[in-house]
């Protein structure tokens, strides 16, 4: 698993692509079978929202997992996972615009301004859009690796806003949003800790070989 062949990676990508479509297929099947409960519209909207959060967290897991396992090829799956987060986020937003507001733009504008949880959710989506648009080799070349990386670090903010959006709409029981929050805190915390370790190493004047996890082969070989 350390160095899978290009053919193996392609196969993994195809498998992952299909796997990521399963939540959507599950919802479509449930709608077809009328198995989504008494309020299917709410069920679908919520489910698309929580899958957006799950994909954001999965995307954020790639770097730590790669660093801990030494499986650098994992990085080549990250773009797809991030794009799936955007895909589910777009569907979630569409379900709100259509089934909740029926494209009543003045009501939507009022909602965005007045309701913090909508404001936060909408900001998260807007911040996600440039990341999705620059998820290609051409954009990386145009922006340059450093700037591209800086831009894509906004996923940290997006994920925080996403969990906040979730917690804020719940009537009372914060147990589930809390789980997302803890996982996110772990994923961000481990990055902060590594960064801190490196900084201390540099301050101590030690010569450091760049850590495995810090080298980011941005343009992926085809």
């Amino acid at each position: 698993m350390k160095n899978p062949s290009p053919a193996a990676i392609s196969a993994i990508k195809v498998f992952l692509f299909l796997l990521c479509l399963l939540p959507l297929a599950h919802l479509a099947w449930g709608a077809w079978q009328d198995a989504l409960g008494a309020n299917p519209i709410e069920f679908v909207t919520r489910s698309l929202g929580t899958w957006t959060l799950k994909f954001l967290l999965i995307t954020l897991t790639v770097t730590p997992l790669r660093r801990l396992s030494g499986w650098h090829w994992l990085l080549r799956l990250r773009r797809m996972l991030g794009l799936y987060a955007f895909f589910y986020g777009s569907l979630h937003l569409s379900s709100y615009l259509w089934w909740d507001q029926f494209f009543d733009w003045s009501a939507i504008a009022k909602d965005i301004l007045k309701r913090p949880f909508i404001t936060v959710g909408m900001s998260a989506f807007l911040l996600m859009t440039p990341l999705a648009l620059t998820s290609n080799a051409w954009a990386i070349r145009r922006l340059g690796g450093r700037r591209w990386q800086a831009l894509h670090r906004s996923i940290y903010v997006i994920a925080i806003l996403g969990v906040l959006h979730y917690a804020w709409l719940i009537k009372k029981d914060l147990f589930l949003p809390l789980i997302y929050f803890v996982l996110l805190a772990l994923l961000l915390g481990i990055r902060a800790w590594w960064r801190n370790q490196e900084r201390r190493g540099q301050q101590a004047g030690k010569y450091l070989t760049p850590r495995r996890g810090r080298i980011i082969p941005l343009v992926v070989r085809r």
Partner: peptide, 11 residues
């Protein structure tokens, strides 16, 4: 946190 102007009648 949310509007009470409208409602979804179940079904």
């Amino acid at each position: 946190r949310w509007s009470q102007a409208r409602e979804r009648r179940i079904g």
